[in-house]
């Protein structure tokens, strides 16, 4: 992938993260890492977003919120699970209120490791998500322009 065919917008939801990954996601948007130079924008409206960035693990209370945001997003969409908690439950996997990674409730396309995930890893995850997004476009018989 030598160029980005479109500016990917992302919606971020903190499932039950410790904030560590969340502030690193925000740090990606700020001057040192500045993903906005690639056209990546963090927005609040799920209907505008192409990429769903989830940090933290799933519990009874936030399950429906995650599904709700996911269902509202327009196709094609990509889910990126950020950090150890979002991929598997991480250090909290044995807690009574943690059910596991985000893939328990919605399909996940890209997993980003780390506790807390480093901004470089997060950016790499989002770039990989763009590749997945492009493939999904092709499958739908459309070309991203």
């Amino acid at each position: 992938m030598s160029y980005l065919p479109k500016s990917p917008w992302l919606v971020h939801y903190d499932a039950s993260s410790c904030n560590g990954c969340d502030i690193e996601v925000l740090a990606c948007l700020t001057p040192l890492y500045d993903v906005e130079r690639f056209g990546v924008l963090n927005i609040g409206n799920p209907k505008h977003a192409d990429i769903f960035v989830v940090t933290g693990s799933v519990n009874e209370q936030n399950k429906s919120v995650i599904q709700n945001i996911y269902n509202q997003m327009a196709e094609p969409k990509v889910v990126v699970a950020i950090g150890a908690c979002a991929t598997s439950g991480g250090i909290f996997r044995e807690c009574y209120n943690v059910q596991g990674g985000v893939d328990k409730v919605i399909p996940v396309d890209v997993y980003v490791p780390g506790c807390a995930a480093r901004p470089e890893a997060i950016i790499d995850g989002v770039v990989q998500a763009l590749g997945v997004l492009e493939e999904k476009y092709k499958k739908m018989g459309k070309v991203a322009k």
Binding site: D14, N59, Q61, F92, V98
Partner: peptide, 27 residues
């Protein structure tokens, strides 16, 4: 929405390991 129940983990992690769990109360 963010409740994990990490205080209960003291029954599964020894008191040295618990440090790493408690650090993740908040990032």
């Amino acid at each position: 929405f963010v409740h994990r129940g990490l205080e209960k983990l003291v029954e599964k992690r020894d008191f040295h390991e618990m440090m790493y769990v408690i650090e993740r109360v908040c990032g």
